[in-house]
Design a binder for these strands. Structure first.
Length: 511
RNA sequence: GCGGGUGUAGCUUAGUGGUAAAGCUCCAGCCUUCCAAGCUGGCUAUGAGGGUUCGAUUCCCUUCACCCGCUCCA
């Protein structure tokens, strides 16, 4: 008893848990670091044989919930949502209109001493006229009188008139060694300005020149906005309705971190809901509820998931309200990380594109004859973040089983729904197992595994989260029944082999 | 982008300025009637590049990746 206690492993810390999840993902072929054999590449990840199945399952469930069987609206009728798959590269003007190019591409400087970061064009430098002593960096918009206090501290008795105010942008790098940062004590701690444009640039055409710069999309949403008119004109949809899109997006993140949580290439599942401005608030609440239900139905529930409203200071300038659905990842624990944002974007995007493209994007309501610019509620989820949350939630330590761990996937999400296992590699077992496998694979993602002893095979399936194992033994030969072994409980029962497909169908039932 | 840490096989760990070791996994075969059993055999590693040295996995430099903290996240 005492000895047993002593050998019981200590509970995992969140960091250890995350490390194990990453190791399992690599070991079993869910997720690999991209360009592994070349030493890797920061911020990119590859999805292995099981990872792509898991990701596709989540993607398909979202598509079904949004496009194929959208929820019932407040009026008792299903809401209307259509799909879209727009190009990753669009006319660069799209990203100017959206604000991604220009407005957010400002160079920043860091202070090595204070670890603070400043926009280069927001800083001025006070240059001493007599050339003596340090140069003083101060905020351009100096409401707090920083310049005065800095001169008092470092100006050696000189007055403000003894300095000339220059923009930091106009000051050469060779002078940075003389500059004291706005909050620093020593000179020379400011880094050279770095541009923080998060959009990936590329060049169109075989001959590269600055005239043909284009951008990889930073979000799938803009592809939806620029097709709003196309969809309205071609699809018989009427406001309110939604357009949904799933696809890759690219951002030059300053600092990719935390496995696939923040990567430079990722996948989004976004839906833009177009509605009358007067109904926007109602639809915002509607989608908040619906989207929360979605993640809960996949098994993310309890204390690990929450809804959080953005504070006023957090809101982007065009949003009149944003809710995040957040998950307690091991690397955020005890905090939470964003899984999906539901944003009320007003008519900002359509208005921007109307102005920049000169194409009228207003909607004419055929019933009321009212002309208006639709407002937008946007549930925008991270597919790859969803995969990570599902993996973290499913990871279950169980020292009572040979593998020591299993992945508790919802059967609808599991990369493999079942494994077909002949108890031995002899006699009729493999023959019957192969027959069952060929039948089941027409409808389900299943594995046939004949090699090695049964315990090893159960353990392997536990580690990849296969919810059911069907085992063929001598009794199967005699009476046509197989053993079902359930992943979470390891319990077994016998059912007729002829009922296996129906059994699986019932268990996997869509969420 | 800043600071700190780590880097030996798929995983977990040894070890050394002079032939790189083990357990588990994995693969092949045998055995096996329900949870990684047993037997035999096999594959696989010092992240990359430079320097010092007769000789570097070990010491030094650079770089890359990952982890932690800050920062960033339209």
């Amino acid at each position: 008893m005492t000895a047993e206690k002593l050998t019981t492993p200590a509970p995992q810390t969140p960091a250890e848990r995350m490390k194990d999840i990453v190791a399992l993902c690599k070991r079993r072929g869910f997720i690999f670091g991209a360009s592994d054999i070349y030493g890797g590449i920061n911020g990119f990840w590859d999805y292995g044989p099981l990872g792509v199945e898991l990701k596709n399952n989540l993607r398909d469930l979202w598509w079904k919930k949004m496009v194929l069987t959208p929820p019932i609206g407040p009026d008792g009728q299903p809401v209307e949502i259509v799909g879209l798959d727009s190009a990753i590269i669009q006319n660069p003007k799209v990203w100017v209109a959206s604000g991604h190019v220009g407005g957010f591409a400002d160079p920043m400087v860091d202070c090595r001493e204070t670890k603070k970061r400043y926009r280069e064009d927001h800083l001025d430098v006070l240059v001493p006229n007599d050339g003596e002593g340090p140069w003083l960096a101060v905020p351009q918009n100096d409401e707090d009188g920083v310049a005065k206090s800095r001169i008092k501290k470092f100006g050696k008795g000189r007055s403000e008139d003894a300095f000339t105010r220059k923009s930091l942008s106009g000051i050469g790098l060779e002078n940075y060694a003389k500059i004291i940062g706005p909050d620093a004590k020593e000179a020379g701690t400011l880094t050279e300005p770095k541009a923080f444009n998060l959009l990936f640039e590329t060049k169109i055409g075989a001959v590269a020149s600055d005239d043909n710069i284009a951008y990889l999309r930073g979000e799938t949403a803009q592809g939806i906005f620029i097709n709003f008119k196309n969809v309205v004109d071609s699809s018989r949809v009427r406001v309110p309705f939604g357009i949904a899109q799933i696809g890759k997006a690219f951002r030059n993140e300053v600092n990719p971190r935390n496995f696939i949580f923040r990567s430079r290439e990722f996948e989004q599942m976004e839906m833009e809901w177009f509605c009358h401005p007067n109904e926007a608030k109602m639809w915002f609440d509607f989608w908040k509820t619906e989207r929360q239900k979605f993640w809960q139905s996949l098994g993310l529930s309890g204390d690990n998931i929450l809804m959080r409203e953005h504070g006023q200071d957090e809101l982007v300038f065009y949003s009149k309200g944003t809710f995040d659905i957040e998950y307690k990842f091991p690397f955020t624990d005890p905090g939470f990380g964003e899984l999906e944002g539901i944003a009320y974007r007003t008519d900002y995007d359509l208005t921007q594109h109307q102005e920049h493209s000169k194409v009228k994007l207003e909607y004419m309501d055929p019933v009321t004859n009212e002309r208006f610019m639709p407002h937008v509620v946007e549930p925008a989820a991270g597919l790859t973040r969803g995969v990570l949350a599902i993996l973290c939630e499913a990871y279950t330590v169980d020292t009572n089983r040979p593998s020591g761990v299993y992945l508790n996937f919802h059967p609808a999400l599991a990369p493999k729904k079942a494994a077909i296992l002949p108890l031995t590699a002899k006699d009729e077992h493999p023959k019957l197992a192969t027959k069952l496998y060929l039948e089941l694979r027409e409808e389900f993602a299943v594995d046939l595994d004949i090699k090695q002893n049964i315990g090893k095979r159960y353990a392997r399936q536990d580690e990849i989260g296969t919810p059911f194992c069907f085992t063929i033994d001598d009794q199967t030969v005699a009476d046509g029944t197989v053993t079902v072994r359930e992943r979470n409980t390891m319990a077994q029962e016998r059912i007729p082999m002829a009922n296996v497909a129906a059994y699986l169908r019932e268990k996997i039932k869509r969420v």
